[in-house]
Design a protein around this nucleic acid. Sequence first.
DNA 1: TATGAATGAGTATTCATTCAT
DNA 2: GATGAATGAATACTCATTCAT
Lengths: 238, 238, 238, 238
Amino acid sequence: MIERAPAQSPRADMVRNRQLLLTAATEAFAEGGVDVSMGEIAQRAGVAKGTVFRHFPSKDDLLAAITLRLLDGLVGTAERLLKADDAGAALREFMTAGVETLTADRAFCEVIGRPSLQHAEVRAEIARLCDTVEALTARAREQGAVRGDITGTDVVLLLGGIHQTAAPVLDQQPQAWRRYLELAFAGLFATGARALPHHPPAGLHLTDPRQSARPAGGSPPSPARRRQEVTTTKGHTD
Amino acid sequence: MIERAPAQSPRADMVRNRQLLLTAATEAFAEGGVDVSMGEIAQRAGVAKGTVFRHFPSKDDLLAAITLRLLDGLVGTAERLLKADDAGAALREFMTAGVETLTADRAFCEVIGRPSLQHAEVRAEIARLCDTVEALTARAREQGAVRGDITGTDVVLLLGGIHQTAAPVLDQQPQAWRRYLELAFAGLFATGARALPHHPPAGLHLTDPRQSARPAGGSPPSPARRRQEVTTTKGHTD
Amino acid sequence: MIERAPAQSPRADMVRNRQLLLTAATEAFAEGGVDVSMGEIAQRAGVAKGTVFRHFPSKDDLLAAITLRLLDGLVGTAERLLKADDAGAALREFMTAGVETLTADRAFCEVIGRPSLQHAEVRAEIARLCDTVEALTARAREQGAVRGDITGTDVVLLLGGIHQTAAPVLDQQPQAWRRYLELAFAGLFATGARALPHHPPAGLHLTDPRQSARPAGGSPPSPARRRQEVTTTKGHTD
Amino acid sequence: MIERAPAQSPRADMVRNRQLLLTAATEAFAEGGVDVSMGEIAQRAGVAKGTVFRHFPSKDDLLAAITLRLLDGLVGTAERLLKADDAGAALREFMTAGVETLTADRAFCEVIGRPSLQHAEVRAEIARLCDTVEALTARAREQGAVRGDITGTDVVLLLGGIHQTAAPVLDQQPQAWRRYLELAFAGLFATGARALPHHPPAGLHLTDPRQSARPAGGSPPSPARRRQEVTTTKGHTD
DNA sequence: TATGAATGAGTATTCATTCAT
DNA sequence: GATGAATGAATACTCATTCAT
């Protein structure tokens, strides 16, 4: 109902809308977490609700797309830093970038933090991130810049942990994460410290959540659950 | 639907139900986060929905009750450890207990992590926890067991951070948090490390969420939002 | 579930649905009073519950829309009659139309009758009605057709009163209101009668109900009451 | 659980409670209308909810009991006035008392106004009231104090109408009903006025609402409706 | 392709009523 | 008889998703 400039290709508009949506959704989720409604995102992007669903068949797909963009960014950063001379400094820089990213995006944390929220693609990208960061970490280990028992997966996991440490005071002290990042560095670079217990996680090669059903005591998965398999963890029963 | 012990007084059943509810709710929230419905909790506890509301007039009250139990436990632990000789070991023990507690309860983290989810009582108890832990930390500092720039609030915040670090692999490796706890200790006890940047948070003396409205760019607060001021952050639109 | 005329634009259906809803709601409220549920209205209109809320974001809005339609009709009638030569006859005609309207709609009375049920818009329209009717009445007074101490607000109030007089026998004698209307005329046009006591109401310029809390003796306003500020007056306890 | 003074007879307490309840309920309903909850009434009376139900098996029964008391009062007043010399003045006095009673009790109006809210006993008492008032009116007619075409049922109905006229301004002008009562007198006593149209209602000998089902278009009476047959008119659907 | 109206399952919460103590 | 805990149907309202235009 609103005219659009006749763009170069018929697809130009679609591409534009996709960008608009990703931007709006990133912002919206960042501010409000995964519970922000599709309607609000549509509105922020200035498109109709139907358009959101044309581009992303479900809310989960949209969440996945956004998360992937962020993960890609981190992977890119890690890859770039792989070329730096000082591997310790590179690791520092990567982690700083990583925590900053998380701090800006609440939804990202929620998605990353809950296995049940994850798309296959996201899981794959997480694996890629872990691999790249493992390379980064390996170099730092070899250069003696980090303690020897630290893995790439540790580093990736720490990103979320450091962010979470500062999260409760985020409103009052938006930079507090820097404090806890430094504290983590102190641990990470404490080459003389006592060895870490418990073997390092094998990576975040998370299993498909659909296979790890309710551990115990739950009711059978109601049919109404079918929709929303991924987004919601709302158990329910009735 | 559930057998009942032939209790002596009508209160006996009520007490039992309250316990049943707290247990069921703790479990349910731990598994599914704060979005688990009251209906599911009722069912898990084997009572009718109305019974949940008789015991906890609103979902927030239930959440608060659960959270308070956990916080009380932590405060108790901290108080007990205040009497230990070795303040460093005491701090270690407190943090171990703390992270373990968190690991058992996802909702706890969500409630603690989001100022907007908090009851006045919960905020008060958090303050109390911070104070007690500050005392614990002060002793450790004085004994030279921890670096000098660590506060009690730092310690409390770290509990959530350490837990979060391991959370993504919780299903596969339920003990992974021990690894990151030790790593945190390495940072905390690294007395020679470089000073932490950014002054320590003043405590978790969180402000009343009703005063810190949506920061920016949001949609106008729909009137229907009025309900549920505390629990939900769900935006919506259409 | 219901046949639809093959309309030209998507709006056609929407308009139709809006009409369907207003009609169904008017009927439903007329029969059952304001306590009829939104679900029943949806069903009567042959639409889903969500559709009702798309058109009228809350029950109050629906009630207000219906009431406004009726008020508008009355204002229109009054304005038209302002041009008549015989002001007394015009007033008679207006009142006849008014009572007839009310008789067709119970909810209208409940909404008009209770200050606490009112939308700002409804209050404004009531004020407009009073003003127009005051003009009508003033002319009748000047022409000596009505007693001198009758105001427009009196006339508007009488509409509800006359309707109410006949309401208990509405089912058995749907035209009984004509009898009481005539009786009211006899009072109104009784120019020689003794003066009315108590000064006339200043108009129905009702105050915002949120400022006039429970007068006395009540229970403390439960927080859960916040929702539904307008529609319900349901106290509760337990 | 609370000791009570060992009253004369074992029933003394019951009688007391019944009074307490009737008083509390009258007040509560007067203030809040029929939607006040049984819980609130119990609380106001200082008894437990169960006690309310022991005395009045359902909310309708309680409502009926209260309404009967008021009706009884009116019948008593009418009977007393039957002995007065000046029948016109007696009628005036009766109506004044009647409207005043109504004005003090919102629930009474709701119950009287809606056939569907009525108990058989209430209907019988209304009939008795009509009869008594008919006698009162007949005397006034015979004395030429009222116009000849006015019946006792007219008078009873007018009570509600006059009250309703002033109801919308009740908060601001609690005495406004006197104005409309006088206006009604002017009509009633206007012996020279034109004859009233439409034959007078045969009385309020209302039919059992259960026999006059939904007139048209409604949904089938849901089984869940069975309870609450009288009180609620809440249709519902889903 | 974009739109936005319609859908309908889901949520928290209320309240009359029942029943064990 | 009194108590108050438990019940469960009902209600207003939300939101992901579908589908006609």
